[in-house]
Deep mutational scan, measured.
Amino acid sequence: MRVFPVYAPKLIVKHARIFLTGVIWVKDLGRLEFEKGRFLLPRKSLPKVKQAILELNELIEAQN
């Protein structure tokens, strides 16, 4: 598990694309899981977490 002390979308996306499957922890967002290079949306999450995951997945799609 990698810990990101700040929310840096480009760096987080780079990590997810390299490792494809895993878990990261982002300060103020908490634990985020990714599989096959995409972030998974938890069943229950705060609106800011949901927005961050959608933003990260959009960045991943834009890079493909």
Rank of each mutant, 00 (worst) to 15 (best):
L41I: 12
I12N: 00
I60F: 08
I18P: 02
V3C: 12
D28P: 12
E35I: 10
E61Y: 12
A52P: 01
L54E: 06
G30D: 02
K36E: 15
L20C: 07
E35Y: 10
W25T: 05
T21E: 13
K14E: 15
R38M: 11
G37H: 04
F34E: 00
L59S: 04
E35G: 06
L56C: 03
V23R: 13
I53P: 00
K44A: 07
K27E: 15
R43M: 07
R43G: 08
V26Y: 01
K44I: 06
F4W: 03
M1D: 15
L20K: 07
K14L: 08
R17L: 14
A16T: 12
N57Q: 03
D28A: 12
Q63G: 11
A8P: 01
K44H: 09
I18Q: 15
S45T: 12
R31W: 05
E33H: 14
L54A: 11
I12R: 00
E58C: 08
L41E: 11
W25S: 04
V3D: 06
G30Y: 03
I53S: 03
E55M: 07
F34R: 00
L46D: 08
V26A: 03
G37I: 06
Y7S: 02
L46V: 12
T21M: 11
L41A: 11
V3G: 05
L20I: 13
V13D: 00
P42S: 07
K48N: 07
L11D: 12
N64F: 05
V3T: 07
W25N: 04
Q51T: 09
E33Y: 15
K48C: 05
A62P: 06
E61G: 10
E35W: 08
S45E: 09
L41T: 11
V6T: 06
L20V: 09
P5H: 15
F4I: 03
S45N: 13
H15R: 03
V3N: 09
R38Q: 11
I18M: 14
F19M: 11
P47M: 11
P9K: 05
L56P: 01
A8W: 11
A16E: 00
K27I: 15
I24H: 00
A8D: 10
A52R: 08
G37F: 04
F34D: 00
